[in-house]
């Protein structure tokens, strides 16, 4: 099963490689990873999407906790949480598909952030399903490339899943 794990880590050099090294060294899988500073510049937050059975996920969270630079590990999957990802998609639609691309962008509450004679670059934010659906719908119009940020997540205030 897929899990979204959120980490608070010391904002020191080498921390990312400690975490990446833990995953590769023990054969765990990283599906996406995003890193950013928190309100305290000495602390960074990392959101890692990984997968495995319960025993593997338990080991992953324990192993992460064991790293000296990790302050806190939260398995978001245990909590009610909000998650978002952003994607930038460059499409090169035929003349007759252009209107459809713009219409889809509107439906998905995206924005066109760049355009050229032959392409649009569209920005969409949402949870994974929405991003996936948008990509699927745009495919027939001709996607040149896309870039995803990886997931970020935050716990909803005051609610714990039973």
């Amino acid at each position: 099963m897929r899990h979204t794990i959120s980490l608070l880590v010391e904002n020191k050099f080498g921390v990312l490689s400690r975490i990446a090294g833990l995953f590769s060294g023990r054969g765990y899988n990283i599906e996406s990873l995003s890193v950013g500073e928190t309100i305290d510049p000495q602390i960074s937050t990392m959101t890692i999407v990984t997968s495995g059975d319960d025993q593997i996920i338990e080991q992953i969270t324990k192993q992460l906790n064991k790293l000296i630079d990790v302050i806190k590990v939260i398995d978001m999957t245990e909590f009610d949480h909000v998650e978002r990802e952003m994607v930038l998609i460059k499409v090169a639609p035929k003349q007759e598909d252009k209107a459809e691309v713009l219409r889809l962008t509107e439906i998905f509450r995206g924005r066109v952030v760049d355009s050229s004679k032959t392409t649009y670059t569209v920005e969409v934010t949402g949870d994974e399903k929405k991003i996936q659906a948008f990509i699927e719908l745009l495919k027939p119009a001709g996607i040149k490339e896309f870039v995803r940020t990886g997931k970020i997540a935050i716990v909803r205030e005051g609610i714990k899943k039973s």
Partner: peptide, 8 residues
């Protein structure tokens, strides 16, 4: 003392 040893 090492939680990762347990249920590994």
């Amino acid at each position: 003392i090492d939680p990762t040893s347990i249920r590994k």
